[in-house]
Design a protein around this nucleic acid. Structure first.
Length: 419
RNA sequence: CGGGCUGUAGUAUACCGGUAGUACAAGCGCUUUGGGAGCGUUUAGACUGGGUUCGAUUCCCAGCAGCCCGACCA
């Protein structure tokens, strides 16, 4: 992509109404646009990151048998009344509205009811289970206080998978697999080293659930981490009984702030009973399906990566989710430079390497470098009079101080071998 | 929902009860090109409503909006 054609521009100044690092860098870089408190639009660069994250999650979901669908955002009141989750006294974050004929409807804030009522149409026999269904969806929550940029919004993009198992044992097997899958996802997006499987409250459905907490000062939760065991305990269930049941010693746990980037929990059979999702087992008995729920907020995940992996100059994207692999800077207005930059750009494109070329004219070298650091694309390649004199292209990682000169063929080899 | 702080060009800010200034961005002209360039020039601003006052962007009240702390967070 040509940066001269990209409609977003970088900002030198930090927005006065944003304090959190993720919002500051994402807005300055032109990744997101703030519509109102807790509501952000994704601009071209930001969307590329979200899509990368989405694809990583999709691959992992498909790999454990997930079937992707897309459920509606407008919600039927009657369905939620069956589980006693329509009343504002029970769920205080609903956005509700009305049809022209005054029928009350709601905007999706969660998915269990959706999925369960859909599957009721298709599940009859034990032979139909298990089912693992998921979707990516924009979720609306009327939070009393949104905060921290895109970390806690009123509208956000998430992935939710629901497992419908025949019984608790089948559920537990899948649940354990999902723990590994989730760990893989957080490793792939580059925050695995800071993300811990965390024991947390089970909320309304079960005694305990598991969160995936990433250590960051921008976090909302307090967690107690056992480095040795690579697990943590959320403050909300930090009790002697829990510590002992996990075989941990209290004095070896370290307190941190963490942000919940994922959550998996066991719903059990209550939902299925309320929404009448029963199947017939091999003895002819009516049995409710056993349900589990597995969520990841993609926007929050993107914000967490920014919080955790940036430096004072800007973002530092892991290669797996970076909007582009290479930021190619064309420095100077000389004809030789322009031709060579164009040549390198086209060769990279022809090799299917994702490249953003800074082909803007009249922009000083310093400004291009500063922008490149802010955008945080993993590799920076520079074509300039200097690099041409040295018969190559200057290549540098975002995290490195100094680059080195490589030939065009070396550059192409380096990046095509990565694909 | 309780508490605190803040609303001035596109962005970031300054001063002021009496002509609202600066920087960046944007337009034009020229110069410049390895770490957010220079000169000239043009464009552009006081959240809304009330009150006090000869006069309010400034003081007061209310509303709206934003941020932060806490509570909440399936």
């Amino acid at each position: 992509m040509q940066q001269s054609k990209l409609f977003t521009k970088t900002k030198k100044e930090t927005p006065s109404d944003e304090v959190s690092k993720n919002a500051e860098f994402l807005i300055r870089g032109g990744f997101i646009y703030k519509e109102m408190a807790g509501v952000y639009s994704y601009l071209p660069l930001g969307l590329r990151v979200i899509k990368k994250i989405e694809n990583i999650i999709r691959e992992e979901m498909d790999a454990i048998g997930g079937q992707e669908m897309k459920t509606s955002i407008l919600q039927n009141k009657e369905v939620w009344e069956k589980t006693n989750r329509w009343d504002d006294k029970e769920v205080d974050i609903w956005f509700k509205t009305k049809l022209k004929n005054d029928t009350e409807i709601g905007l999706s804030w969660s998915n269990e009811e959706n999925f369960t009522s859909i599957l009721k149409q298709y599940v009859n026999s034990y032979k139909d289970l298990p089912i693992y269904a998921y979707d990516f969806k924009d979720i609306m929550r009327n939070e009393v206080r949104s905060k921290s940029g895109i970390m806690r919004g009123r509208e956000f993009y998430w992935k939710a998978l629901y497992s419908f198992s025949k019984d608790e044992k089948e559920h537990n097997d899948f649940y354990e697999k999902m723990k590994i899958t989730y760990s893989n996802i957080f490793k792939k997006v580059g925050i695995g080293h800071l993300t811990y499987l965390t024991f947390a409250s089970g909320g309304a459905f079960s005694k305990y659930s598991h969160e995936f907490q990433t250590i960051t000062s921008a976090g909302e939760d307090t967690i107690y981490v056992s480095e040795d065991n690579a697990i943590a305990i959320n403050k909300e269930v930090f009790e002697d009984e829990v510590i002992a049941s996990l075989g941990l010693e209290k004095n070896k746990l370290v307190e941190h702030r963490g942000i919940e980037v994922g959550n998996i929990f066991t719903l059990g059979t209550n939902k299925a009973e309320s929404l009448d999702l029963y199947y017939t087992d091999d003895k002819g008995n009516k049995v409710p399906a056993f349900i589990g729920s597995y969520g990841i907020g993609l926007g929050r995940l993107m914000g967490t990566v920014v919080e955790v992996l940036s430096d004072d100059k800007g973002m530092i994207w892991p290669e797996t989710i970076a909007p582009f692999k290479i930021h190619l800077l064309s420095l100077g207005e000389g004809e030789a430079v322009l031709l060579e930059a164009k040549n390198v750009y086209e060769k990279l494109l022809a090799s299917d390497v994702e490249v953003l070329i800074d082909d803007r004219s009249g922009i000083s070298a310093g400004e291009k470098f500063a922008d490149s650091d802010l955008l945080g694309i993993p590799y920076r390649a520079v074509v300039s009079e200097r690099s041409i004199k040295e018969n190559g292209i200057e290549l540098k990682k975002r995290t490195e101080e100094k680059g080195k000169i490589v030939s065009l063929s070396e550059l192409l080899n380096l990046f095509t071998s990565k694909i």
